[in-house]
């Protein structure tokens, strides 16, 4: 904008223009300074955690918390090793329930959105309203019945006991299965909304053309809608994976104990490094990073898709 006006202005006004241009440049500098300052604000807690996680107790006492250990002798990766030993089973468990429920959520959500958006019938707005309201229901409002349902009524561990003799299957997989079902059920509303936001923009005439071409409701989904929703599937996978991985309340109540063989990564992290002498911060920081690693990785690789999921 400023450049354009400089080229069109008269030479006599150059002095006045110069001041304006300088002002804008100064403004740009201020803008970038602010933006970089904000980067500092958002990254400082994370950066501080990272440098702390590799400090020895001496290093911890002798450096500012946000500075890296300045002496090579103050660096140790022992805490990472310890944290990893604690968290590794939890990471496996978290993967075991996060991936299946993410996939189930995406499939069921896409189907629900299709049935509620592209096939027109009366009353679908009411059903849809129930789906959307489901996004906002606080988990506290269902957590006691949920706990009752799994622990008193279903008792999957006992019911499926015939399975645990099979190779590769272990009794704590019952809890994992409970978590898969639970996360799927509570993930469906938001995923349905995400898919619906895309399906609403799909050309109605195209769906009608496919139906006139002889395709049944199912075939329209299979051959037209599904191939066209692949980008949205990517968004949903990334968003939902992060959400389920990060979740804590269900882990806490359904799994119950940090020592349970089915304990998730977030659950183990919540109890990591607690002792009577106080909190072992380097260990906690290392644990936090290990727990966050899958989500961090996904986020760094697919930040745009994540943002797209957040926007809807």
């Amino acid at each position: 904008m400023s450049e354009k006006s400089v080229t069109t202005e008269e030479a006599a006004e150059q002095t006045a223009m110069k001041r304006v241009t300088d002002g804008i440049t100064l403004g740009r500098v201020g803008l970038y300074a602010t933006l970089i300052g904000l980067v500092g604000f958002y990254l400082l807690p994370i950066e501080s955690g990272l440098v702390t996680s590799i400090k020895t107790p001496t290093g911890l006492d002798n450096t500012f918390p946000f500075l890296p250990p300045l002496d090579a002798g103050w660096i140790t990766f022992e805490k990472w090793q310890v944290a990893f030993d604690y968290l590794a089973p939890g990471m496996v468990n978290s993967m075991l329930f996060t991936i299946p429920s993410t996939i189930l959520c995406a499939i069921l959500g896409s189907m629900a959105a299709y049935g509620l958006t592209l096939v027109d019938w009366r009353g679908q707005i009411a059903v849809l309203a129930l789906f959307i309201a489901g996004i906002f229901v606080p988990y506290q409002a269902v957590i006691v019945p949920l706990f009752q349902f799994w622990s008193q009524y279903m008792q999957l561990g006992a019911r499926l006991s015939f399975l645990w003799g099979l190779p590769l299957l272990e009794p704590h997989y019952a809890t994992i299965l409970e978590l898969i079902i639970t996360h799927t059920a509570y993930g469906i509303p938001i995923v349905t909304l995400l898919f619906r936001s895309q399906y609403k923009t799909m050309s109605n005439e195209m769906i009608e053309a496919a139906r006139l071409d002889g395709a049944s409701v199912w075939r329209v989904y299979r051959r037209i809608v599904l191939p066209l929703s692949i980008p949205m599937f990517a968004v949903v996978f990334i968003f939902q994976f992060t959400q389920i991985w990060n979740e804590f309340l269900f882990s806490l109540t359904i799994i119950g104990s940090t020592n349970d063989p089915a304990a998730s990564a977030t659950l183990i992290l919540s109890g990591l490094g607690q002792s009577l002498e106080g909190t072992d911060y380097p260990l906690r920081m290392a644990g936090a990073f290990i727990t966050a690693l899958p989500t961090l990785l996904v986020y760094v690789l697919f930040a745009d898709k994540f943002a797209e999921g957040v926007q809807t």
Partner: peptide
């Protein structure tokens, strides 16, 4: 991407960071 990064992390993870930030003796 950087400003949105904390939102992608679990509360359990960010709580660890902030406990350290708020630490009485040598918190930032």
């Amino acid at each position: 991407t950087i400003y949105l990064l904390p939102f992608a992390l679990s509360f359990i993870v960010t709580a660890q960071f902030w406990r350290w930030m708020y630490n009485v003796n040598n918190g930032i």
